[in-house]
Nucleic acid binder design. Structure first.
Lengths: 197, 197
DNA sequence: TCCTGACTTGACACGATGTAAAGTTGACAT
DNA sequence: ATGTCAACTTTACATCGTGTCAAGTCAGGA
């Protein structure tokens, strides 16, 4: 069958979009830029995607598919104790962020302007939240969740801690290395959520 | 003299901009909207401000002036111990955020698109960073800063913790009350930065 | 041979920002 | 009263990016 073996203009467009979003920081990526990069007419974009927002959203989905985020996050679920699970989740997600940052930033920038972008981003973040919730519950099951926190509040806190904005601030703005970032998040998460033995 | 007693179109414009930014979430505030709100022609805006970005930046400065943020943050410096100083700073800044959020969000939304907006926002945040740094140093002077943290890293962490994005996430997205937010930030800051006695 | 689907070409409407130029108005000095 | 000046209005227009429309090209398959 090799159903996806054609020149596959759609894929070319998605990869060009991705490439441009990664290289140029910001959303100064115009439809015509993407078309030129893909070696295709501007109108061809509209044959595959109804508008700019949907194209960018499709790009993030393509990215998730290629990078296989779900599998990576799911891996953290195999950890036995709540603590190792928390660490594994933070490591999986924390190391995923830099790979998607270019595209994520573009989607983030459109959030206030475009409801569809907001929706798309909030869907992706919901997946992260579920990971946070699972880690918190594992912690709770082990009796290691701080007693003054209920699972919801703890999830809110962990979710907030792991937001892309915080990654950006520490690594891009403050110049931390990726390792320093991940280590700090692990430490902070423990201090926030975990009680003494 | 009453030098500011004229109809003062400039002020009318600034206040209209402020009002609109607060009411409508996002940057769907057009120049013509502002003009209508101020009861003035669209062109009058360009007599007072060279372009949209500069108008929005001027609005944040006007806001800071009216709300007197500098005085409020400075108040936290009078605290005697490092710990009370940390608390006072978090309380001053944390309670300031909701007052400026409408305008801040608009400026934030333009960041990736407009270098001037980026610059303006980063200037404001630099003031916050200085407050963080002062609190961290006071803590250090008391010997209460965690030994594994140097002052720079500690400042980076506190600064990141107190970002507007995190406030937004916890209050707007997660539905926390303002008090819950401030309390959580105080607790987290202590756990992050302060070592046992 | 004809048809069809994918893509191109060129033109255009729309909405927002920003510029330009000429007209109005009211205060104030002489 | 007259002239002038500054602030503001009105109208018109250039520009830029998105999205739409319609007609044309072209390869491959029944």
């Amino acid at each position: 069958m090799m159903s996806r073996n054609k020149p596959d203009t759609r894929t070319k467009i998605l990869e060009s979009t991705w490439r441009l979003l990664e290289s140029t920081t910001g959303d100064d990526v115009r439809m015509s830029d993407i078309a030129k990069e893909a070696g295709v007419s501007r109108q061809a974009l509209y044959l595959h995607f109804p508008n700019r927002v949907d194209l960018l959203i499709a790009t993030t989905r393509y990215l998730d598919e290629v990078k296989n985020i779900d599998a990576r996050l799911a891996a953290s679920r195999s950890a036995t104790t709540g603590l190792t699970r928390l660490d594994a989740f933070i490591e999986a997600w924390g190391n995923y962020i830099p790979e998607i940052f270019g595209v994520a930033a573009a989607l983030l920038a459109m959030q206030d302007k475009d409801p569809a972008a907001k929706e798309a981003w909030s869907n992706r973040m919901q997946a992260v939240r579920e990971g946070c919730e699972a880690a918190v519950k594992a912690l709770d099951r082990d009796g290691r969740l701080r007693p003054e926190l209920d699972a919801d509040k703890a999830t809110d806190l962990l979710w907030t801690l792991l937001m892309v904005h915080n990654w950006r601030q520490l690594t891009v703005a403050c110049g931390w290395t990726q390792e320093a970032y991940v280590d700090a998040m692990k430490t902070l998460a423990r201090r926030m959520l975990v009680c003494e033995t």
